[in-house]
Structures are given as structure tokens and as C-alpha cells.
Nucleic acid binder design. Structure first.
Lengths: 195, 195
DNA sequence: TCAAGGTGTAAGCAGGTGCTTACATTAGTA
DNA sequence: TACTAATGTAAGCACCTGCTTACACCTTGA
């Protein structure tokens, strides 16, 4: 209360407001269904500032996609990454700030930037970690399949809102998924060392 | 060759041309990125006819979503529905006419009609069949999870084009998926009859 | 043969889009 | 205080969008 003397001009605050507003709107409606006027209005900012600070609507989308950290991955042991990711994604309530870019991608799949963001971020993060969990030769493909499942569940539950999965108990979902995934992501005992 | 005297005026042919063109374009670019002028151009038809025959762009989308049959489901025993669906979805080459609405949904997830089409079609077809494969109490949820996996794989492979899954061998994918799914979709022997 | 309705065409309208510009206002500094 | 650069504002431009309208043409049937 005391710290923020209402300084009316603050470029950093404006940038942050635009980023947050756009991130949430893209997650709610997708890229195409969100206008720059919507973003500026939610941020409480003149829309010309969007172009001053981010260049274009695409530039803002790109900034969102590269703004999220990798806290969950860095803080979690590999064998628990899937469980914790599911837990966060399935927990009720509005999508967290961390998960918003995830939903923005699902709702903007047709957009070029969404595809490359998914490939680079998700690919370079989740899949690398998940792939360490098995010693099968096609470990990365198996990790991709797990990622695909996460994406599909998010799509069906939150974007397409299909029942019963849309309102199913998170633990019930997690139990099934983890049990099934353990079949394809595990140290196989059938492969004897060859040397 | 002999049968189709080039009759220049044929409402049915025009309707069909519009439907096919729109189906493919929606599958390639998504609903928002496709304009009515694009559709009319690919169909080789004046764009005003789109509105005469389908009322609106949304009406055309709806027509596409309700135009596909359920041949695969009706012709396939329940225990092979997943395997054959994967086989068709993963087979190389351009998406078939049958699968186009599927990709149209993935690329138009933000669109309202896509969500309801998925709920009604996929929900009332695939899931009902898949749910018969297990006698667990949450059979429908398990079937939804399988559907989510199919969707996620299509999304990651064709829309987001992530490697290695984008160019992976179909059989390799199918093997993993079928093996994992068998864990959650099977007759459980642990449930003794209670009466 | 000739009206009449089905079919195709050209042109354009009203509104929305991303983006730009010219200008006003503020904050920091010499 | 006076200057300057950073920040915010209002207005609008050029284009695209879904959709409509008025009209021309073809085909059919009595």
C-alpha cells in the first residue's frame, strides 16, 4: 500500500499489464478471437502502446510464449514431473498464470507461432526430462506420446469441455494416466546389458 | 467421361464443391484463417452461392461436421476400433476426406462449433464404443482418456509438427499406445462378481 | 414459344482489423 | 527552471471480413 505511490507513467508496469492481459485473453479465446483493442482494454492501456512495446500482435504472442519459466521442471525430480504436471493442470479453478500459455497454444493451434513455441518450449523441456525415464531406443518418441496425452487431456477437458472428463476427479484421471504411462516409460528389465 | 455432359448449372454439384473445399481448407488452416473467398475460389464458385446454400460461414462449418459418417465404427468390432483409428490417422499422405473434419476440429478448437461437434460426434461414437471394453465403474472416463490421447497425438504430429513424433513409424506409435491403453481398457479379473 | 423459377455473377456495404501518426503530457536532469 | 526524452492519447488509415443486393443467364415445362 505504501510502496506504490500511484506513479502514472511506468513503462515496465505497462508492458507487464499488456503481457498479462494478452496471456489470459489468448488462453480464454485463442489468438484470432482476441483483438488488440481487447488486450489494451483489459490492461487499462492505450492500444498504441501495445505496438510501441511489442511491435505487433504477433510480437506480443511471441513474448508470452518465451516469458514462462521452467520452475516446475527444474524443481521436480524427473520421475515426478508427469505427476506434478497433471496435478497442476487438473487442479480446479481458473488456469494459473503458469498454465495460461499452455491453453493459449491449445486455442491457437492454427497459429504459426503456437506451433513453434510448443516445439521449442515443450519439446526442449518436458520431453527431454521424460525421455530420461526409459532406456528404450525410442525414448523420445515415448516421451512425445506422453506429452501428446497431456495436451489431449487439456484439450478435451478445458477447451472442448467434454463430459465426463471435463468435471472428473483429478486423482481419478491421474491414477489412470500414470498407470498406463508406466508401461511405456520405465526401465525395462528385459534388456540385458550386451557387454 | 461419357456420363458427365458438362452441365454448367448444377446446384448439387455446387453444394458438394463448396463442402469439399471448405472441409479441406478448415483442416489445413482452421476456421478463422479461412475466408469465404478462399472457399469459393477453391470450389470454383461465386462466393455468394456459399450464403445461398449454407446461410453463413458457420452454417457451412456445421454442415461439414454433420456430414461425415460412422463407417469405421459400424464396420469394426469394438476391440479393434482404437487400432484401426490409429492406423487411419497415422497412415502417411494427405488427410483423407474422412479424417478432414477431425483436423478441422483440432485447428479450430477456439471455435464454438468445433467444441460442440466434437462433443456430440466423437462423444456419441468413439467413446461409447471404447467404454464397452472395460467393466470398471469409470469406463466412460477411461474412454475419454483414450480419446484425449488420439486427439493429442493428432495435434502434436500434424498440427504442431513436433519431432520425432511427426515422422515416426505408425506401427511404432501404435504399439506403444495399444500396450499402454490395454492397462486401462480391459476386463479386470480382480473384480469378483458380488452376487 | 415463352413465362418463371432456379442458378450464377458482379459489385458493394457496414463493420471490424492491425497498425500508424501527430500530438499532449509527464518525469528526469543539467 | 528549462530542456529533453520517455510515456500516454486521440484519431484515423488502409485493408479485410462476412454478408447482401440487384441483376443476368440458363433450363424446364406447359
Amino acid at each position: 500500500m505504501a510502496e506504490d505511490v500511484p506513479r502514472r507513467r511506468d513503462a515496465d508496469a505497462t508492458r507487464a499489464a499488456l503481457l498479462t492481459a494478452a496471456r489470459d485473453l489468448f488462453a480464454e479465446r485463442g489468438f484470432d478471437q482476441t483483438t488488440v483493442r481487447d488486450i489494451a482494454a483489459r490492461a487499462g492501456v492505450n492500444q498504441a502502446l501495445l505496438f510501441r512495446y511489442y511491435g505487433s500482435k504477433d510480437g506480443l504472442f511471441h513474448a508470452i510464449m518465451t516469458s514462462t519459466g521452467r520452475e516446475l521442471i527444474d524443481e521436480t525430480p524427473p520421475e515426478y514431473v508427469l505427476a506434478r504436471t497433471l496435478q497442476r493442470m487438473l487442479s480446479p479453478g481458473a488456469p494459473t498464470a503458469e498454465a495460461s500459455p499452455f491453453y493459449a497454444i491449445l486455442r491457437s493451434a492454427a497459429h504459426q507461432g503456437a506451433a513453434s513455441a510448443m516445439r521449442e518450449k515443450m519439446g526442449g523441456q518436458y520431453v527431454d526430462v521424460l525421455a530420461t525415464l526409459t532406456d528404450e531406443p525410442n525414448a523420445e518418441l515415448r516421451a512425445d506420446l506422453v506429452l501428446a496425452w497431456i495436451l489431449g487431456i487439456g484439450l478435451l477437458r478445458y477447451v472442448l469441455v467434454k463430459e465426463p472428463i471435463a468435471h472428473a476427479d483429478p486423482d481419478e484421471i491421474s491414477d489412470c494416466v500414470l498407470k498406463a504411462v508406466s508401461v511405456i516409460l520405465e526401465r525395462s528389465a528385459q534388456h540385458p546389458p550386451t557387454d
